[in-house]
């Protein structure tokens, strides 16, 4: 029987390991893709998936069955990733932003665009300059190809908010492409 997430979380709160396995099976792939999109590192992404689910299990008592599971997993993993990269050296960050400047966005549509570079730049802006919620919604829409109502259902938010966040994402990306300085 396909149990919905609310029932699963209720069971996990009572330390039901089978329910936890069902939850893992249901979200492992989606979470992996979500994390990989941010880190671009395969084994690191595997680790973060594991760490995220460990956190869920350890904090199972305080889980809220009415909250969206995906946004909960997304929030935990985003925090883990942030903590991890905080420790990276400042120098690497500096190099990255230099790379950004060296390949500016062409304002003139007639000019030949290097789409590969554009894609990389968009990816970097999405991950650096969008809020977690905004990035999650943009990711689900563009990378997972989910429709706005689907995203609203998955994250338990309104369709209006999905549209607004996608608008903010596009606006931010366009602005940052024009003015690559952070």
């Amino acid at each position: 029987m396909q149990q919905d997430d609310t029932i699963l979380i209720t069971k996990i709160k009572q330390s039901d390991r089978n329910a936890f396995k069902t939850l893992f099976t249901r979200y492992q792939a989606d979470l992996f893709k979500y994390i990989y999109y941010k880190t671009l590192d395969y084994s690191l992404s595997e680790d973060f998936v594991q760490e995220t689910f460990i956190k869920v299990w350890m904090k199972r008592i305080s889980l809220n069955p009415d909250q969206s599971v995906f946004s909960y997993l997304a929030a935990i993993s985003s925090n883990l990733i942030r903590d991890h990269f905080k420790h990276l050296k400042v120098r690497e960050k500096h190099q990255e932003s230099e790379k950004e400047i060296s390949t500016p966005f062409h304002d003139n549509p007639e000019e030949v665009m290097d789409y590969r570079i554009l894609r990389e730049k968009i990816h970097s802006i999405v991950n650096k300059h969008l809020s977690d919620t905004c990035r999650t919604i943009f990711y689900l829409s563009r990378i997972e190809g989910r429709s706005n109502p689907e995203i609203a259902g998955l994250l338990k938010i309104t369709k209006k908010k999905v549209e607004n966040q996608l608008y903010i994402a596009l606006k931010t990306i366009r602005k940052k492409l024009k003015n690559p300085l952070p």
């Binding site: 894609r119 968009i122 990378i143 596009l170 990306i173």
Partner: peptide, 8 residues
């Protein structure tokens, strides 16, 4: 932007 961002 919309189209390229979906290619990954």
């Amino acid at each position: 932007i919309w189209e390229e961002s979906g290619k990954f």
